[in-house]
């Protein structure tokens, strides 16, 4: 009996020790792991990003600035910002509504809805673009719209639609696991204390999910700015009208204007970096407030 206890104790000691051993890797292993991770980051993130900026400034600062005095370049930047300003808020509304419905309620067809939300991730962007061409160019509905003066494809609305479609899952997919882990206890408590549905949403749900939501918005915005495939199909590539930044980069590149194309690429990169910086600042402020 006593022997049994000692074995148990020594066994748990052994366990603890081996646990410690796992956590305390020899230094060379840790250095190696760190080196691999950093090396990978450097090679696949930092070097390409640096290349974009080096190539952009190859012909000097003046040439860099000249790119942006060009009407077509300005328009591409403006169009991209406009498309994001429409598509991102719409997807925030949709994403919150979908995540709310899926995690706080039980209903038939929930899994089906989840699968549908994932569809844009699974479908190639080319197809996402082509569906809109089919709907708006080759159906009676499309003809009717055209006859009434609504140009959807090869125009800004088509680009917005294609962007909406591809960035559809970002907010919802970010929120669903978060809200699932939080459960609906706090909402139930609020409602049983007499809060209305809206009040519960604004005062209980939203504060709980806001960091997840922000993260989703950042990802959604990044993809919306950078989307190439789907937008390329519905754009019509009219210079100065329907070219977003990524499409304009291609046009410049194919017109042998390399410095200019990399200058545009650097703007896209900068916009992405700014989005990330905003996210970091907001997060820090939140942490200080808390």
């Amino acid at each position: 009996m006593g022997g049994g206890i000692t074995t148990l104790v020594s066994h748990s000691k052994n366990l603890k020790q081996s646990n410690r051993q796992v956590l305390k890797e020899p230094p060379w292993v840790r250095i190696l792991l760190l080196a691999v991770a950093l090396g990978f980051l450097f090679l696949f993130l930092v070097v390409p990003l640096l290349c974009v900026f080096i190539e952009a400034f190859k012909k000097g600062g003046q040439a860099y600035l000249d790119t942006f005095s060009d009407r077509n370049s300005q328009q591409a930047i403006f169009l991209t910002l406009k498309v994001c300003a429409i598509a991102v808020p719409l997807n925030v509304v949709f994403g919150v509504a979908a995540a709310w419905a899926i995690t706080k309620f039980h209903f038939k067809g929930k899994n089906f809805l989840l699968t549908l939300i994932d569809l844009p991730f699974a479908v190639s962007p080319v197809i996402s673009g082509l569906v809109f061409i089919l709907i708006f160019s080759h159906t009676g509905f499309g003809e009717w719209l055209k006859d009434h003066g609504f140009k959807v494809v090869f125009n800004t609305p088509g680009i917005v639609l294609a962007t909406l479609f591809v960035t559809f899952p970002f907010v919802a997919r970010e929120l669903i696991p978060l809200m699932q882990s939080q459960g609906s206890d706090e909402e139930q408590a609020a409602i049983s204390l007499g809060a209305s549905g809206w009040k519960t949403f604004w005062r209980v749900t939203l504060p709980n999910i806001k960091w997840g939501l922000l993260h989703g918005v950042v990802l959604c915005n990044a993809r919306a700015m950078g989307e190439f495939g789907a937008v390329s199909v519905v754009s019509g590539h009219i210079q100065g009208k329907t070219n977003t930044i990524p499409l304009h980069i291609e046009v410049l590149y194919e017109s042998s204007l390399y410095s200019a194309s990399f200058a545009m690429a650097s703007i896209l990169t900068l916009l992405a970096l700014i989005t990330l910086i905003i996210k970091t600042i907001v997060e820090r402020q939140h942490n200080q407030a808390a």
Binding site: S137, K151, V153, F154
Partner: peptide
């Protein structure tokens, strides 16, 4: 193809 699809 784009003109056939409605590029004006």
């Amino acid at each position: 193809r784009a003109v056939i699809d409605g590029l004006e």
